[in-house]
Write a protein that binds this DNA or RNA. Structure first.
Ligand code: MN
Ligand code: MN
Ligand code: ZN
Ligand code: ZN
Lengths: 127, 127
DNA sequence: TCAATATTAATAACGGTTACTGTTATTAAT
DNA sequence: ATTAATAACAGTAACCGTTATTAATATTGA
């Protein structure tokens, strides 16, 4: 299937900017050059790309959903101060989840670990 | 500090119903008897109780926040079918998080594991 | 008793997201 | 090339969960 110009722009923006952008971030990155892009189009295509498995969506406890072009299984830390999202590799977490699945009658489909705290920069600028 | 009648009702509802109710759930449980209770009052007092450390709030990836009277550190599984939320004890997760904290310059304040899947009932009724 | 304070019910406003609508672009068949 | 069918678009209204505002009511304490 061939993609529309807009969908391609939106996909590339997520894939090339590994900052876990929100829909609004993507919109604001593209809007200056592609002046008649609509925010609704960004949301619609981000959802389509998630359904296609091209990108993933990260639900944030407070604030907008974020999108991620890194399809490898990984988790995230979010800085409560500046809102930046960082990738983490969680070796051993799968084992924990599998143990839970084995000791309950729950069928696991997916799981996410989210760590909250302060990033390096924000830790320094607080004292 | 003495609590208002409303706050006490709301607190008791969360503490006595360990189903991880939403604000709307709490409202709907109380409204039939306390006919002039306002949904805004439920939200406001739930927030106050969370600030006081009397209850905790669980952010759900899709849908409303849920509230929990169980203050012990634990995590949750949510059924993608029926939406029910189940408690899980995650032995070993703290170690994983501490290892991440030690190998990064991130200061961890809190963390949550959320597992998605199918509960026992919904697994059966699908085949 | 009376004023100061806290909390409420009701409702408007908000932020993020989705749904609708009429238009434009793409594709495939004549 | 013209047409018809389909897909995607821009623009915007509607939606949903939550928070903020406001005027009224309840509680406290001199
Ligand atoms: Mn990531
Ligand atoms: Mn719980
Ligand atoms: Zn930070
Ligand atoms: Zn279920």
């Amino acid at each position: 299937m061939k993609y529309s110009k807009q969908r391609e722009l939106i996909q590339n923006t997520v894939l090339e900017n590994r900052i876990h952008p929100t829909a609004d971030d993507v919109y604001n990155m593209l809007k200056p050059i592609h002046t008649n892009l609509s925010l609704g189009t960004v949301y619609r295509n981000l959802n389509t790309l998630v359904e296609n498995g091209t990108i993933i969506k990260i639900s944030m406890p407070n604030g907008s959903d974020r999108y991620d072009g890194d399809l490898s299984k990984h988790d995230h830390m979010v800085c409560d101060q500046c809102g930046k999202v960082f990738d983490i590799k969680t070796e051993g977490l799968l084992n924990i989840v599998q143990k839970i699945e084995n000791t309950t009658d729950f069928e696991v489909r997916d799981y996410q670990l989210m760590i909250h705290g302060l990033c390096h920069n924000c830790k320094e600028s607080k004292g």
